[in-house]
């Protein structure tokens, strides 16, 4: 099973949809609401997201080695099926 990490913002509806995608399918993932972290953790996590995706925008979904920027159901499905 590939490790899945979802970097999200609590204000972002597409981040909620990404959570819903995994929840509905009982797929285990680590969901991080970056804006709800304490300042130190937030800064470290944003740096990580920026390094992974090249952006400071959300959602960013990491499935194994693959990175998906934005909520793209088709792409998530493709990467999970690989």
């Amino acid at each position: 099973m590939k490790k899945i990490t979802l970097y999200a913002l609590s204000t972002c509806p597409f981040c909620r949809m990404a959570k819903g995608y995994f929840d509905k399918r009982d797929i285990e993932y680590e969901g991080i609401d970056v804006d709800m972290l304490n300042e130190k953790e937030k800064e470290e996590t944003i740096q990580e997201v920026q390094k992974i995706s090249g952006r400071r925008a959300f959602p960013v979904i990491v499935i194994g080695e693959e990175v998906i920027v934005g909520y793209d159901e088709l792409r998530i499905g493709e990467v999970l099926d690989k």
Partner: peptide, 25 residues
């Protein structure tokens, strides 16, 4: 998605003082 995004923008304004993009940090 217009209405959910408006909710996100209003949440940003409430918490951070302006209508910042709900998907940007």
């Amino acid at each position: 998605m217009k209405n959910p995004l408006i909710e996100g923008l209003l949440a940003k304004r409430e918490r951070f003082g302006d209508f910042y993009c709900p998907c940007k940090i």
